[in-house]
Design a protein around this nucleic acid. Structure first.
Length: 723
DNA sequence: TACTATTTAATTTTT
DNA sequence: TTAAATAGTA
């Protein structure tokens, strides 16, 4: 067998990984070291050289994009399309299993997937129907709690309330949330994973089947797996399966979302004799950039440890610019971008990275002024747009009359005289009789509603029934087209003034073409409409339509993971912003911020600019800040400091800034306030000052109180006593 | 029911 | 500051 095409152009470590024996393997793949390459070549190696059937391979990723890329690269390498090869996201694969085994999973055949927006709405409705006092918790907090528990693989009955009534109530809410979902046939993202795990765990026949089928498990971005994903993988692998996990502990930046880097250690315990291969040769960045990244990440304690290297050139020094404020920072970036473009480089090769989305505004303003085209990553995607979700809600209600979430979303959209009052009546009837809103509406429409409301509700139900009847035999796109017209949604949005309404109507038209180009997979054996709705939830689509134009890329450092750019700006590199204020308190949080910084630095191929502002307007008030501690972690020899252009205009600001740095709080009634100072508050008792920000009457301090935890207090109101 | 004033809170995001 | 959610008014 000629193995040349599969092993050619791999370095030793990569080849070792790709050709490792049919035993568990863990590949620690540094940034830019050819992680995807190894995964793709491993798959090709198994199929082409080892004669493994594509059917017995399961490849799992986190994003649809990564899954699509892996498939196309494997096919390119093997030069044949690989059907029967399961490649997908955790959620996509879990979904596929649940569709096949809905009975065993305890789900209705036509169960629907809800995204996090739907989930939040559902929780809000639950609050209303249970008359929950939402001063105690916000729906968001409950959503966070529920998803957190599910990510850990926990059902309400598994959670200990520790005798805490607060916690007991949260668990109770989780329980009623589950009941509502079950009744409506709704499955949220975390539930997909949890059920997929349970259905295998509790059905030995099924588990046997899949264990026999999937001999090889390829796992991408292994450091990002959460508890339930890992449990699912472990279950599937059993003791005969061959897991091949690729990841980088230094790029674990989703701990806050339940990802557990510790799985890298756990893997080696669960699969004794694991082959470990480190990929440290980097093909992306200059030596200078890599050395800087290495130096920064070396400050973390909990790591496996690796050192990126390249046989390429050192390249240019990292440029650090100290801006006066965020406007100055933006101007500097724009200046450098101009140079870059003038030198004949593509705009799309430049990226501006920041820690939080709010930072993009000032940069965008400057880019608009400078007439430099740009694209901001993140934001609403196609299937998340309100008008699209409205249309989908109609379709979902047609598919499943018990979907209360969709019912409430569209019962009065377009306006048909069904107000909050009427909805409330239906909701409480549904609650009292443990039935869906649809059933409730049908039952009470004659008795409990006033004439006008009854007519309106009746008209709404007739509309849905009519839609269901008329679209029954249609093709998918005709179903969609018919629905958005007959529902009155198109008319409704046409009335919206200005461009917004136009845009919405266009998007609805776009939905019809999305339905037209959607090709149901016959293997899934689903109704095309159900499959389309699942697709919409699992693949929310592109954020921005005009991705093809050559424009500067703006995004958070999180969304930059996995990407690379010849020119990178890391903006807002200030303590409090990056590392973020809320991560400073605990060391684990700080380490995750540092990993994020490592991710940011390693995005750059040739040139890296790091900028910070001495003064920044945040939440409407001016703050003075220190350069990020991460900058100081880069060895001086790799840094070239860029002085502000006009030295003369600076002394006044500079001296003010310098003063700020010595005493971050402006003198007055706060003499003696400094970090670490013990203070006493009339209500909260004793604590220690963790942080200060702002000045004058706006000055605030963060105090860690012994009894009530940390709080931000406005200094001029708090009346703190020094101790 | 729709528009306007007021309050409140403020990382990171994919599925 | 500003965006979003809530409360109040026409």
């Amino acid at each position: 067998m000629d193995v040349t095409p599969i092993l050619a152009n791999l370095n030793d470590a990569q080849r070792q990984a790709v050709t490792s024996p049919a035993e568990p393997a863990l590949i620690i793949a540094g940034a830019g070291s050819g992680k995807t390459r190894v995964l793709v070549h491993r798959a090709a190696w198994l199929i082409d050289v080892k004669g493994v059937s594509p059917q017995s391979l399961l490849a799992v990723t986190f994003t649809n994009k990564a899954a699509a890329e892996m498939r196309s690269r494997i096919e390119a390498l093997l030069k044949i399309p690989v059907q029967h090869l399961w490649i997908g996201t955790f959620h996509g694969l879990a979904h596929r299993m649940l569709r096949r085994h809905w009975r065993e999973a305890g789900l209705p055949q036509n169960f629907q997937i809800i995204d996090s927006d739907d989930q939040l709405r559902l929780i809000k409705r639950m609050f209303k129907s249970l008359k929950i006092d939402d001063s105690q918790w916000t729906p968001k907090e409950i959503q966070w709690f529920i998803n957190g528990q599910k990510d850990e693989g926990l059902r309400p009955q598994h959670i200990d309330d520790d005798g805490d009534p607060n916690r007991r109530q949260m668990i109770a809410l989780y329980r009623s949330y589950e009941e509502i979902c079950q009744r409506g046939g709704l499955v949220d993202f975390a539930e997909l994973l949890l059920r997929a795990h349970e259905v295998l765990r509790d059905n030995s026949a099924l588990l046997d089947h899949y264990r026999r089928r999937f001999k090889h498990l390829l796992i991408d971005e292994f450091q990002d797996t959460n508890a339930i994903q890992y449990a699912w993988l472990r279950l599937l692998a059993g003791d005969k399966g061959v897991p091949f996990a690729v990841g980088d502990d230094d790029q674990s930046i989703y701990g806050w979302r339940g990802a557990r880097v510790e799985h890298i250690q756990q893997f080696q315990k669960d699969f004794p004799g694991t082959h470990v291969v480190k990929l440290e040769q980097n093909y992306r960045s200059t030596a200078t950039i890599l050395n800087a990244a290495n130096a920064v990440i070396a400050n973390n304690n909990m790591r496996i440890g690796k050192n990126l290297w390249t046989d390429g050139s050192p390249g240019e020094a990292i440029k650090v610019y100290s801006a006066y404020d965020e406007r100055d920072e933006a101007d500097f970036v724009i200046g450098r971008l101009r140079d870059w473009i003038t030198q004949g480089n593509a705009r799309a090769d430049a990226a501006i990275l920041y820690r939080s989305n709010a930072q993009s505004r000032v940069l965008e303003e400057s880019l608009i002024n400078a007439r430099i085209p740009y694209r901001v990553y993140g934001g609403l995607r196609f299937f998340e747009r309100a008008e699209i979700k409205d249309a989908l809600a109609y379709l979902r209600l047609i598919a499943n009359r018990n979907d209360d979430n969709s019912f409430e979303r569209i019962v009065n959209k377009p306006t048909r005289g069904i107000g909050a009052r009427t909805v409330e009546i239906m909701r409480s009837y549904a609650k009292a009789n443990a039935c869906s809103m649809w059933r409730a509406a049908r039952t009470i429409v004659r008795n409990d509603l006033s004439g006008r409301a009854a007519n309106a509700v009746d008209a709404f139900m007739s509309l849905i029934e009519r839609l269901a009847r008329e679209t029954a035999g249609m093709t998918l796109h005709d179903q969609v087209d018919h629905t958005i017209h007959l529902s009155g949604l198109i008319e409704f949005f046409k009335k919206d003034k200005g461009e917004k309404g136009e845009m919405r109507v266009e998007n609805l038209a776009e939905l019809v073409s999305a339905a037209k180009s959607f090709t149901p997979d016959p293997a899934e054996e689903m109704l095309p409409l159900d499959e389309f709705l699942s697709h919409a939830a699992l693949e929310a689509g592109e954020g921005q339509a005009d991705a093809w134009e050559d424009c500067v890329q703006l995004m958070t450092m999180h969304s930059a993971k996995g990407l690379e750019f010849p020119l990178v700006f890391m903006c807002g590199m200030e303590d409090g912003l990056f590392p973020h204020q809320r991560s400073l308190a605990d060391p684990r949080g700080l380490e995750e911020e540092r990993r994020l910084c490592y991710v940011g630095i390693t995005r750059a191929k040739q040139l890296l600019y790091i900028t910070y502002a001495e003064q920044r307007r945040l939440h409407g008030m001016d703050n003075f800040s220190q350069p990020s501690r991460f900058i100081a972690e880069i060895p001086d020899e790799h840094i070239e400091e860029i002085r502000p252009r006009v030295q003369v205009s600076r002394p006044l600001h500079a001296s003010r800034a310098a003063q700020q740095k010595r005493t971050p709080i402006v003198p007055g009634r706060d003499m003696g306030i400094r970090l670490g100072q013990r203070v006493r508050h009339k209500k909260f008792g004793e604590g220690i000052i963790l942080n200060c920000e702002g000045q004058g009457t706006h000055a605030r301090v963060e105090v860690n109180f012994e009894t009530v935890g940390t709080k931000w207090l406005v200094l001029s109101y708090a009346n703190l006593d020094l101790m």
